[in-house]
Structures are given as C-alpha cells and as structure tokens.
C-alpha cells in the first residue's frame, strides 16, 4: 500500500481533506437538546423550528417491527389499486427514510409529498416523547425523486432548509426534494 512515491504526508493530507459525512440525525439531537434547555427558561420564545432528514439509515427496531412498519406504510402509500406504476419493478427496492422536523409550538405536523398523494392526513409526524418539539416520520421510499414539504398545524408550509428546494414551486408554497438511490 506504500508503493507510490508521493510524499506520505501529502497523501495523508489529500485523504483527510475528503468530506466526512456526519449522521444527519445529529441535527435533531442538537435541536432537541436546545429545546429541552429552553423549556421553562424561555417559554414561547421560538416561533417554529424545523429540520430534517438526509440519508437512508437502518432503524434501531427489531426486524419484525421494521417489517411491520414498512408493510403498513407501503400499503398506505403504494398498494392502492388502479394507480400508476410507481415505482417501476426494476427500481422497486425501498429503503427507510427518516424525516425530522423541530417545531416547538406546533400542535400537529404532517409530512406531505409525492409519496403520500399530498394528503395531509396520511403521514402525521410523531412528537418526541420527551418534549414534543422534535417530530419524526419514517417512510420506505423506492429509488426516485420526490417532492415534499412539512405542513404545520394544518396551515403553514415549510420546506426543508437543508434539502434541495424544488425549483418549480408553481403553487406559492415551497417544496423540497429528496432523491433516493438504489446503489
């Protein structure tokens, strides 16, 4: 492995400069800790906070639990008769995605997008049992490109600040894009 004659220190530097991906769930943990710290200290200070997901990851649930979750959601999202053929059979392998939003003063938050017919009743996000300011939803998504947004208290649309924004926001409320890979 030391066959090339480049200065090893330069090789180390090149290697170390490569981007490092930190688990995006860290953002949710940070915001949760901040929200916990603010509870009681600054009541009603924050407006709405949000945050999000990034990449697919294995969830810490039992295989049976994961299966049940995936099956249940998949049935809601995809297994409706007479719909278009999405996803295509060749790209049908789905992966679990976690969406996270921090909304300290929200009473309800829904994840709405191409994956649930933009139906605000379909994927309610669950509040954190600890403080209620971190809301999460888990969805199995097949490879593809999906538009989505968060709907807070049934009236306020939030795009994901850390995800790409949908460029063609024709409807006056922002959307974000999640791209799911298969390889």
């Amino acid at each position: 492995m030391f066959e090339d004659r480049q200065d090893p220190v330069d090789r180390i530097v090149s290697h170390l400069r490569r981007p490092v991906q930190i688990d995006p769930a860290l953002d949710g943990r940070v915001m949760q800790e901040i929200a916990d710290g603010e509870t009681g200290r600054r009541p009603g200070a924050a407006v709405v906070a949000w945050r999000w997901l990034i990449r697919p990851r294995q969830l810490a649930v039992s295989p049976l639990g994961a299966l049940a979750t995936a099956a249940g959601l998949a049935a809601l999202v995809w297994a409706l008769p007479g719909r278009g053929a999405r996803p295509a059979p060749a790209e049908a392998t789905s992966r679990q995605f976690q969406f996270v939003v921090v909304a300290p003063r929200a009473t309800r938050v829904a994840l709405v997008g191409d994956f649930n017919d933009w139906d605000a009743t379909r994927t309610p996000m669950r509040p954190s049992p600890r403080g209620g300011s971190v809301w999460t939803a888990v969805l199995p998504l097949s490879p593809g490109r999906y538009r989505y947004a968060f709907l807070v208290d049934g009236s306020r649309w939030l795009a994901d600040p850390a995800a790409p924004h949908a460029r063609d926001d024709e409807f006056g409320a922002p959307s974000s894009v999640v791209t799911v890979g298969g390889s």
Binding site: G84, V112, D114, W118, R147, F171, G172
Partner: peptide, 26 residues
Amino acid sequence: LPTEPLVQRALEGATKGAPGTLIASA
C-alpha cells in the same frame, strides 16, 4: 407517458390551495 407524476403535481397544487388554472398549467 407515466401519469402518476401528473396526478401528484395536481394533488400538490390542490393541497396547497393553488387556483385551478395554475394547477392545470403546471
């Protein structure tokens, strides 16, 4: 052509309360 993306775009417009003409043109 696949029709599901068209349905989803229409539903996005409907959920966001966009005017019908805007939805149709999108």
